[in-house]
Write a protein that binds this DNA or RNA. Structure first.
Length: 939
RNA sequence: GGGCGGGUAGCUCAGUGGUAGAGCGCUGGUCUUACACACCGGUGGUCGCAGGUUCGAAUCCUGUCCCGCCUACCA
């Protein structure tokens, strides 16, 4: 590649180029070839819903996982990132039903078979959209292995799992109270129900007691009184002792029921102290009903209307019935008032509708026997949860786990493989599609269960069903268990815990070594992204760029422009400074941003400004490479560090070593924030701000260099080439597109692979740590900094050259400063070479002074100085030093410190104090100089 | 009601015993031939509050006040 690099980096020119290249070269493929002896790194990707399109949450997990995956691939692992799609039962069925509705049809008009055809059609059309979007992010998954949870092989796995669990007695059918979604007409597991606080009323009414009198009860759901089969009071409540054993009469229905005593249900201090009991529609009442052997009367139809047991109210919708019942009670003179009441409404996570507790026969998985080994696996460290704090939550949930209701009254999903016999009550559970005969009586009229399984049942098998289970495939052999599982903490129970249980049960060992959990992407102010709030950002808009007009059109469709814009900017204050919209920041910048958030944060407040900042970092990488390319042509880049003798060269290799260590440690600990920041600081802070500047006087000397310096030039060229190439490799997992682009332009080691994605990740052997060089360089930097500070404080024009005198009594420092004369001269911009001498000489008028690294830094400013400013500057420095001196003196004065603190620390503190004291003396002199300036000003 | 997490610079966040850090913002100066998506300076925090342990605490312990999240059957 010889084309010139543009002055500014534009991701649009670079990013689209590389994905196809990677696919063409099979870069992402894992290998299950028997001869492949590399260690494996396996990461099952959380399968996005088939209904989904890419959102910020996907962008986050794709980034984090891609970093892990690309790192391990480069680090020599046979890496499998297993992608796929989840069939998402309720969500998908709802989407397709909505399409049908527009055609004026329901799924029942079509029938089950035709409806399923429609779903498959829809899936074929838009089911892989999200996978195409993932490519924009650079996701390096092994696409040819992609699986869909409804694929034939995965369906086979589901059936196998069901049958085995059934045969082991771990799956059973039972009639009990469940959460019912009246909109989709299906049962939900307790995990799929969200409890939302709401304002309601506590409505009181009276039951007439047989034999005279009344008893007043309170309820938030008056319509359920139609299913009441008892009134409960506390056995010790004196107010009701006289009613024990009596019965009450139902005002609308021709039945009576008992007044019972129950200390569990009734809190005498709440309400009237008397509780109506509706065993079929309330979880507490259900238990009470079981305790007292009460009658169970189901009131509701599957779509939330009152059934025939509702008497005069039969046929009414539950909410209509509520009003009607209240009115009817009113008419009978039985209402006894109402008051506002805070309650908690159970709502369907999917449809948002209030779910109803209802009696129903469903399939369940017995959880306790499965949970126990899953708890043990974490407790024994076979599987580690990171961040560790989630371990407690996991244990707590797993030890209190309820049996899992797995049947759903949907059409889209894996059908329950159970068959009912017309001739006997045997249930045939089988791997066959259509068994011919009943396993009980041998009869031939069998009818399959209508229900399908909870989507999470199939996702629970994901780590092994995707590899071919129940067949013993080479892939299963090689890639189970996985190394890591990375996902949001919000599905720890839905998915992760279930994979743990299923994996251990069917495969005999936990499905992964580590569970890595990340937080939720929220808006810049910390609010959850939601369509209602209008604060949703499409990651693709940040990657490709978008005007705010386009952005809010998506965030709050149909809303008035100004209102939507106001809401959006409120959610993203930093966007207020960004003009008319987002620039095309590129996938690399977004990835780096997402990787820079600490994984233990539960919330990840997305800041557009931060993405802009990392776009700037990409530009920095681009331009640093552009600069380097001007000098490193023809440099030799080897597998081992080049010869480095100059301070700058030794130093940058050492800083590189430090950065690599930071990156590797961060990635290993799932602290991608630490890893990315180590690389960022190295590249920008060390490489660009110092090293590149230091190469300039070598590459472009202001005066002719001797032969020795010419040698340095070659050395510096090789070091620069080596560090740039290595840095691109180190950054690649985070910034894959840009680094790949640039890597093809810089000199590489002989035998380099076709893609940077296949190059080796820098190792500790890549560069030597050189603490002497770091110490010396820090001294030089401090001296340069002090001189620059003086320049800047006195508003010396950046182009002007200043005379610089450096005074030190430390022979080693003096030698160092002499050796680094050219660096100091260039970076401070001095007039001629700086003078380096011993302390104590005279100081000409107009000289200002600072102290750094045991060195007096003197600048003669020839009357350019503002005495007041100089006094202020010195005072400021002096104040700082005095504060530090005071703190140290105080500490050292304590006898207990010298006695009990580690001796190294005491010695170190003493040395520090001495240095600071010397500095204080020097600054005192500087103060004198500043004062002289003031006098000199006066005529 | 229970559990968990958090309160550190104007903002968003790192920092698990040894004299407080980053990015952004703010501010002064520069278009210095890699980069103004930049460079060189500067400002800015009694680490929620109160006790305790320790030679030493943002960091450990106790209490307390706020803020989140999860969980729960007060009718």
């Amino acid at each position: 590649m010889t084309t010139e690099l543009a002055k500014a980096y534009d991701p649009k020119d670079v990013e689209p180029r590389w994905y196809q290249y990677w696919l063409d070269h099979g870069v992402f493929a894992a290998s299950d070839a028997p001869g492949d002896a590399r260690p494996t790194y396996v990461l099952p990707m959380p399968p996005p819903n088939v209904t989904g399109s890419l959102h910020m949450g996907h962008a986050l997990f794709c980034t984090l996982e891609d970093v892990l995956v690309r790192f391990h691939r480069m680090d020599g692992y046979n890496t499998l990132w297993q992608p796929g799609i989840d069939h998402a039962g309720i969500a998908t069925q709802t989407v397709v039903e909505r399409i049908l509705k527009r055609e004026g049809k329901t799924r029942h008009d079509l029938g089950r078979e035709k409806f399923l055809e429609r779903v498959w059609d829809w899936k074929a059309q838009s089911g892989d959209r999200i996978q195409l979007q993932q490519r924009v992010l650079g996701v390096s998954a092994d696409w040819p292995r992609s699986k869909f949870t409804m694929d034939a092989d995965l369906s086979k796995a589901v059936r196998e799992a069901f049958v085995r669990l059934y045969e082991e007695g771990l799956i059973y059918r039972d009639k009990r109270l469940v959460y019912w979604d009246c909109e989709v007409h299906t049962v939900l597991s307790n995990l799929e129900v969200d409890n939302e606080p709401a304002k309601g009323e506590l409505f009181e009414f009276a039951y007439e007691v047989e034999g005279g009198g009344e008893i007043v009860v309170a309820t938030t759901r008056p319509e359920t009184m139609l299913g009441d089969t008892a009134v409960a009071v506390h056995p010790d409540d004196p107010r009701y002792t006289h009613l024990h054993g009596k019965r009450v009469r139902h005002p609308f229905l021709d039945r009576t029921f008992p007044i019972i005593c129950d200390a569990v249900l009734v809190d005498p201090k709440f309400g009237t102290g008397a509780v109506k009991v509706t065993p079929s529609h309330d979880f507490n009442d259900f238990a009470t009903g079981k305790r007292h052997d009460l009658e169970f009367i189901n009131l509701l139809t599957i779509d939330g209307k009152l059934n025939e047991n509702g008497g005069p109210f039969a046929g009414l919708d539950r909410f209509v019935a509520r009003k009607a019942v209240k009115k009817a009670l009113e008419e009978k003179g039985l209402t006894r008032g109402s008051k506002p009441h805070d309650l908690v409404l159970p709502k369907s996570q999917r449809t948002g509708t209030v779910v109803e507790p209802m009696m129903s026969t469903q399939w369940y998985v017995k959880m306790a026997p499965l949970a126990e080994p899953a708890i043990a696996a974490v407790r024994e460290g076979k599987t580690k949860i990171i961040p560790e704090e989630w371990t407690k939550t996991y244990e707590h949930w797993m030890t209190n786990i309820l049996d899992w209701c797995i049947s759903r009254q949907l059409w889209w999903g894996h059908r329950v493989p159970a068959f009912y016999c017309a001739d006997c009550d045997h249930v045939t559970v089988t791997r066959e599609d259509a068994p011919a005969t009943c396993g009980g009586c041998g009869g031939a009229s069998l009818r399959q269960d209508e229900d399908v399984l909870d989507t999470w049942f199939s996702s629970g098998l994901w780590p092994f069903s995707t590899l071919g289970w129940p067949e013993k495939t080479p892939a299963l052999e090689r890639f189970y268990p996985a190394s890591d599982l990375e996902t949001g903490y919000d599905i720890l129970f839905f998915w992760v815990a279930r994979m743990m249980m299923m994996g251990i049960h069917f495969m005999g060992e936990p499905p992964f070594k580590r569970i890595l959990l990340h937080g939720l992407v929220v808006d810049e102010t910390g609010d959850k992204m939601s369509k209602v709030k209008g604060n949703v950002i499409d990651p693709l808009d940040l990657i490709h760029g978008a005007t705010f007009d386009a952005v809010i059109e998506k965030a709050l469709p149909g809303a008035p422009h100004d209102e939507a814009l106001r809401k959006f900017k409120k959610a993203y204050p930093s966007a207020g400074q960004m003009g008319a919209g987002f620039a095309s920041y590129g996938a690399d910048a977004m990835r780096f941003t997402l990787a820079s958030y600490s994984p233990q944060a539960k919330r990840i407040p997305l800041s557009p400004k931060k993405i802009e900042g990392y776009r700037n970092f990409c530009n920095k990488i681009w331009n640093a490479t552009r600069f380097a390319l001007g000098y490193i042509d023809g440099a030799t880049v080897g597998a081992t560090p080049p010869r480095a003798t100059t301070l700058a060269n030794r130093w940058i290799l050492s800083r590189f070593a430090f950065a690599i260590d930071g990156a590797r440690t961060g990635i290993a600990d799932f602290r991608l924030d630490d890893a990315s920041s180590a690389l960022y600081q190295f590249f920008w802070g060390d490489l660009c701000d110092w090293f590149l500047e230091l190469t300039k006087p070598t590459f472009n000397p202001s005066e002719a260099l001797g032969p020795a310096a010419e040698g340095q030039k070659d050395e510096t060229r090789d070091v620069l080439a080596y560090v740039i190439e290595g840095a691109l490799r180190a950054l690649h997992p985070f910034i894959p597109f840009l680094t790949e682009e640039l890597w093809h332009r810089v000199p590489r080691a002989p035998g380099a692979p076709v893609s940077l994605a296949l190059a080796s990740y820098p190792t500790p052997a890549t560069a030597p740590r050189d603490l002497d060089a770091e110490r010396d360089m820090a001294a030089v930097q401090a001296v340069i900094g002090a001189a620059r500070s003086i320049r800047s404080e006195h508003e010396v024009h950046p182009g002007a050259e200043i005379p610089l005198v450096l005074r030190t009594d430390d022979a080693r420092v003096a030698a160092l400063l002499v050796a680094e004369t050219r660096a100091i001269r260039t970076l401070v911009k001095t007039a001629g070479a700086p003078t380096i001498e011993a302390r104590g000489g005279a100081r000409p008028h107009g000289t200002v002074m600072s102290v750094a690294a045991e060195t007096e830094v003197l600048v003669a400013l020839k009357g350019l100085v503002d005495p007041a400013k100089e006094t202020a500057r010195v005072d400021r420095e002096l104040k700082k030093v005095e504060k530090d001196v005071a703190a140290l003196e105080k500490k050292l004065a304590l006898p207990s410190f010298a006695d009990k603190a580690p001796p190294e620390l005491v010695a170190e503190s003493k040395a520090q104090l001495e240095e600071l004291q010397r500095k204080r003396v020097a600054l005192g002199e500087a103060q004198g100089l500043a004062a002289e300036l003031g006098e000199a000003e006066k005529p």
